[in-house]
Design a protein around this nucleic acid. Structure first.
Length: 452
RNA sequence: GGCGACGUGGCCGACUGGCUUAGGCACGGGCCUGCAAAGCCCUUUAACCGAGUUCGAUUCUCGGCGUCGCCUCCA
């Protein structure tokens, strides 16, 4: 059973399954108005690892992750660039999933778009209005947070205390709100803006209403886990919950939040600070698996520095596992039980992937020792355990690729030259093969080639 | 101003009141190799500062210093 930190209770507790053997997860997806940055990459990788691990243990996971395809930022950009807003949303969504594919992040089981749920969103807001939990102002319909007794649950702070400071920013519709914490459910549209009909006038849904509707529509009440980046804890998740609570609905039973990607000075990367690295740029420069490895070696709730040194270390660590995979690819056996037990224990302890990776690296080392000692039995069961662990966390190993006939001929010639002690020729052949992009491993047993 | 997280060896990063375990990367030495590469072995003896609790604290408590986050753009 996976024990997982729950933001609502500030405790590590079992992640309960509403239906045994199944797990329902809602992950707040991106607002598609620009390229994804590496913070998005972290969030999606963390939950991809969670999902894959759960699936590996035999749990059927339904992961719903939305696309926010209508939002002020999309409209702003459309206006600025004089393009249709839908064009921006669709192109950005395409880039998003392209990056996800490169990262090896499995596509969610459901990808609802906000614009596909406007009717249901209107219905939900109407229910809130009917219950006096929402009210109208000149610019939209607002949620009355004071009807929610435990508003502030996820923030772990009283509203008054939250409002005491930090009031140095522009708050949408602030002048007409009944309470400063109230938030917009429906925004009336200005001329030329995208608009949908509603009983209160044309407009568009507020961000917080989209997610509560889509999660409840697709997963139903009392779904197992709601997750996202730590910055969504408040206000976004708090506000989603407030709407559900105000309607008497059973909302998410467990809340999970991942830590941020920070820059080399330790500051959070965010678009407003201008210190973001775009995900496509990162993926152009490095093996995508290196980012996954880097995150696996950090706890999901800790901040992680993503810099050149860090990624290089992960690239090198990965190279070691790759060459291990290549030298043990032909071995098959039942995976070593103790190793997998240790791995599960680490993962079940609030997804302690750094410890789990320790187990993995230890297994690699022991398997290598066994190979060197000619103990194929142990080598096989250890290496099989390594392959299992890699599957569980979504690490694809680069096993030896096919070697073309020409290169194989050069390798054979290389072996012949070595046998004849013609080392000048042997060195030349090796250099040739390396120039062709192969990793050349010359051993007593003969030369093996891998794609570099 | 409120709430919270963190400060571990050259870098990243876990566990833990004592029984010298992290783990990865880098550096150095060795084995292997014709030489390399890959792999293996060994190595360097760390916990921001101060006080307290304790037989004993990196680990608990308090204080200080520092870094970071949330407080209606945000993964």
């Amino acid at each position: 059973m996976l024990n997982l930190y729950d933001t609502a209770t500030s405790q590590i507790r079992p992640l309960k399954q509403r239906v045994p053997g199944q797990l329902s997860i809602y992950l707040c997806g991106p607002t598609v108005y620009g390229p994804p940055h590496i913070g998005h990459g972290r969030a999606t990788l963390v939950y991809d690892i969670l999902r894959r691990y759960l699936e590996w243990t035999g749990v059927a996971v339904r992961l719903v992750s939305n696309i926010t395809d209508i939002d002020d930022k999309i409209i702003d950009r459309a206006t600025r660039e004089n393009r249709p807003w839908l064009d921006i949303a669709q192109k950005c969504e395409h880039v998003w999933f392209e990056s996800m594919a490169r990262l090896g992040v499995k596509r969610p089981t459901d990808v609802p778009r906000a614009t596909e749920y406007v009717d249901q969103i209107v219905d939900l807001i109407a229910d809130l209005v009917a219950k006096d939990a929402a009210y109208r102002t000149d610019d939209g319909i607002y949620m009355s947070t004071s009807v929610v007794a435990d508003y502030g649950l996820l923030a772990h702070q009283k509203i008054d205390d939250m409002l005491a400071g930090g009031g140095d920013r522009n708050v949408f519709g602030a002048d007409q709100k009944k309470h400063p914490a109230d938030f917009v459910l429906w925004k009336f549209s200005k001329p030329g803006e995208p608009a949908w009909p509603s009983p209160w006038g044309e407009g568009r849904p507020g961000w917080h209403s989209e997610c509560v509707v889509m999660s409840l529509e697709l997963l139903g009440e009392g779904f197992d886990l709601h997750c996202g980046g730590a910055d969504l804890r408040f206000p976004h998740h708090e506000n989603e919950r407030a709407q559900a609570v105000a309607l008497g609905k059973d909302f998410a039973h467990h809340w999970m939040h991942n830590g941020f990607v920070v820059d080399t000075e330790g500051e959070k990367m965010s678009k407003s600070l201008g210190n973001v690295t775009n995900l496509p740029d990162l993926l152009d420069r490095y093996d995508a698996r290196a980012y996954r490895m880097l995150l696996l070696q950090t706890h999901y709730r800790s901040p992680v520095k993503v810099g050149l040194d860090n990624i290089d270390a992960s690239v090198n660590a990965l190279a070691g596992i790759d060459s291990f995979a290549a030298r043990t690819s032909s071995l098959t056996a039942t995976p070593d039980v103790a190793t997998l037990d240790a791995f599960r224990a680490a993962m079940n302890d609030d997804l302690n992937t750094p410890v789990a990776m320790g187990v993995l690296f230890d297994a690699v080392r022991r398997a290598n020792i066994a190979v060197d000692a000619g103990d194929t039995q142990s080598a096989a069961s250890m290496s099989s355990a390594v392959r299992e662990m890699c599957i569980a966390v979504g690490l694809q190993l680069d096993v030896a690729k096919e070697v073309d006939a020409d290169a194989q001929a050069l390798a054979t010639a290389l072996d012949a030259a070595r046998a004849a002690k013609d080392f000048a020729t042997a060195d030349k052949l090796r250099a040739e093969l390396q120039a062709l992009g192969y990793l050349v491993e010359t051993t007593k047993a003969g030369t093996t080639l891998r794609r570099a």
